[in-house]
Amino acid sequence: IDVRFTVNGLDVTVRVRTEEIAERVKELAKNGVDWREIQRIAEELNK
């Protein structure tokens, strides 16, 4: 599942395995978490 969001004007796409992880990623993006941090968290959750 590809999750797309915009952080500080940057369009970011993170690929995740499940809808649940996708929701977590969207939540982080909404809360203004840095995209590199979101990427790292997504990689952890995908394991």
Rank of each mutant, 00 (worst) to 15 (best):
I1V: 08
I1C: 06
I1N: 03
D2M: 12
V3K: 01
V3W: 02
R4S: 13
R4C: 10
R4P: 06
F5Y: 05
F5T: 03
T6S: 12
T6G: 03
V7Q: 15
V7T: 07
N8H: 09
G9L: 03
G9Q: 04
L10G: 06
L10C: 06
L10P: 01
L10F: 15
L10V: 15
D11P: 11
D11S: 13
D11W: 14
V12K: 07
V12G: 03
T13A: 08
T13N: 08
V14K: 00
V14G: 00
V14Y: 06
V14C: 04
V14M: 10
V14N: 00
R15M: 11
R15H: 14
R15I: 10
R15F: 14
V16Q: 00
R17E: 12
R17C: 08
R17P: 05
R17T: 09
R17V: 15
E19F: 10
E19M: 12
E20A: 13
E20G: 08
E20T: 08
E20W: 14
E20F: 10
I21S: 03
I21F: 05
A22H: 03
A22K: 05
A22N: 01
A22M: 06
E23S: 10
E23D: 12
E23R: 13
R24E: 05
V25A: 01
V25E: 00
V25C: 05
V25I: 15
K26A: 09
K26F: 09
E27P: 00
E27K: 08
E27M: 10
L28W: 05
L28T: 01
L28R: 01
L28I: 03
L28C: 04
L28H: 04
A29F: 15
A29C: 08
K30E: 12
N31V: 08
N31L: 14
N31K: 13
G32N: 09
G32P: 02
G32D: 05
G32R: 05
V33K: 06
V33G: 04
D34I: 07
D34P: 14
D34S: 13
D34V: 06
W35F: 14
R36F: 12
R36C: 09
R36Q: 15
R36L: 14
E37C: 06
E37Y: 05
Q39M: 14
Q39P: 02
Q39Y: 08
R40G: 05
R40W: 08
R40S: 09
R40Y: 08
I41V: 08
I41T: 05
I41K: 04
I41S: 02
I41D: 01
I41G: 01
A42L: 09
A42D: 01
A42F: 04
E43R: 07
E43W: 08
E43A: 11
E44I: 10
L45N: 02
N46E: 04
N46G: 05
K47V: 12
K47H: 14
